[in-house]
Simulated scan of single mutants.
Amino acid sequence: MAQTTWWRLLAFFVLMVTKAQTTENTSRCKMYNDSDRKVLSVLEPLTNQNFTVTTKNGEEEYTYVFQVCGDADGVKDAGVVQKSKGNTVIVIGNYSVTEAFKGSDWVLLIYQGGEKYHEHCSKGSRKAMIMISCDRTKAAGPLSVVLEDRERNTDCFYLFEMDSSVVCPLIESKLSTGSILLIVCFSCLAVYLIGGFLYQRLIVGAKGFEQFPNYGFWSEIGNLSADGCDFVCRSRGSREEPPTYRGVSTEPLEEPEERDDHLLPM
C-alpha cells in the first residue's frame, strides 16, 4: 500500500512539473483577468522569438519587433517596440499589462501601457493589438502592420497581424467504426507476424520458411479447409436410392446353383 502511495505522489509531481514548464514563458504576461490566462497557453510555442517587420512611409522607415510575453528586442517588459533609423526605440505596448481573447481560429493579444504620444491621441499611451490567425501551413509569421490609428482623442492603437498554426482548432477524427476495426486487425496481424518471426529466428533458431510463425498450422490450412468443406457439404452415405416400383427389393437376385454332380464318376 505504501509503495502504491509513493508511485501516485511521484506521478502527481511529474504532472505538475510538466504543466508548469508548458506555461512557464506565457506566465510572464501580467493579465487583467487571470481567468483568461488559459488563452495564452495556446501561444506557448511562439514564445522566446522576435517577430519583426519593416515599413516605409516616404523617407521614414520603422522596424517593429514583437514577442509573446517576452522582452521584444531585449527591451525589458516591452511586448512590442518601434525602432527608427536613428536607433530610437519607442515602446508600443508592455506585456506587463496584457489582455487576450480567443475565437474559433484566432487569438487577439493586446499590450497596453506603451509610451505616451507627444502630440496625438490627447497625449495618451500607445497600445499594440496583435491578431494571430489560423494558417496550418505556417508555424509562425510573418508579422505585418495593418494600421496605426492615432487620429482619435483616446484609445489609439497599432494593429498588427500574423498567421500561425498554433491557434488552429484540432481536427477531429472522422474514421468510421469499420475503418477503426480494420486498423486494429491489421495492427494485430503485423504484431503477430513480426513478433512470431523474431521469436522463431532468435529464440528457436529456425531457418527458411520455418521462421514463419505457426508454419505447420498455416501449411495445412488448405487441407483442413478442404476437409471441413467435405464434411459439411458432401454426403457420406450411399447415393443409390431404393426403387419404389411394386415393392421390388433392392437385394440382388440369387442365381440358380449349377450342379455338376452328373460329371462325377460313378
Rank of each mutant, 00 (worst) to 15 (best):
L263R: 07
S176A: 12
L175M: 15
R126P: 01
I203A: 10
V107G: 00
L264S: 04
M1I: 04
H118I: 00
I183M: 12
S235D: 15
S41D: 14
D163H: 12
T18A: 15
H120D: 14
H120C: 06
Y158M: 02
L40M: 10
E241L: 06
F12R: 02
L108Y: 06
P252V: 05
Y199G: 02
Y215S: 04
W106L: 00
I183E: 14
I90F: 15
S144E: 12
V39L: 02
V17E: 15
W6C: 01
A11I: 06
T26R: 02
V17S: 11
S104L: 07
A190I: 06
Q67N: 12
E115F: 03
P45K: 09
L253M: 10
L159M: 12
V91R: 04
D227E: 14
G58V: 05
R136P: 03
G222R: 09
T22D: 13
D163A: 12
E172F: 13
R150M: 10
T26E: 04
Y215I: 11
V81H: 01
R136F: 12
V204C: 07
L182V: 12
E161F: 13
W7V: 02
V17C: 06
R152V: 04
V80E: 02
P213A: 08
S187T: 15
P242K: 11
S133G: 03
T98G: 03
G79P: 00
E254Q: 13
N50Q: 08
G74Q: 05
P142C: 11
V81N: 01
E115W: 07
P256Q: 13
D73W: 04
K85W: 15
L182C: 15
A100Y: 03
A206Q: 09
Y32V: 06
K102N: 03
T47P: 01
L43S: 05
Y192I: 02
V232N: 11
C69D: 01
D227T: 11
F197P: 00
C168T: 12
P169Q: 13
G208N: 08
L9Q: 10
A2E: 02
G103A: 10
W7N: 07
R136Y: 11
P265V: 07
L10K: 06
T98L: 02
A11Y: 04
F101M: 04
D261I: 05
S104G: 07
G70S: 07
L253C: 10
S225T: 15
V166D: 04
A128I: 01
P265H: 08
K127D: 01
W6H: 01
L15P: 00
L9W: 05
E161D: 10
V146L: 07
L263Q: 11
F212P: 00
T18D: 05
L46W: 09
L175R: 13
L182G: 08
M266A: 11
F209E: 06
L147H: 09
G124S: 10
T52W: 04
V167D: 00
G228W: 14
F66T: 00
V97A: 11
E251V: 07
R8Y: 11
Y117D: 05
T250L: 08
C134N: 05
F12C: 08
S133D: 08
K19L: 10
V145H: 10
V146D: 13
T55A: 07
T4Q: 06
G114E: 00
C188T: 10
Y117L: 00
G205I: 03
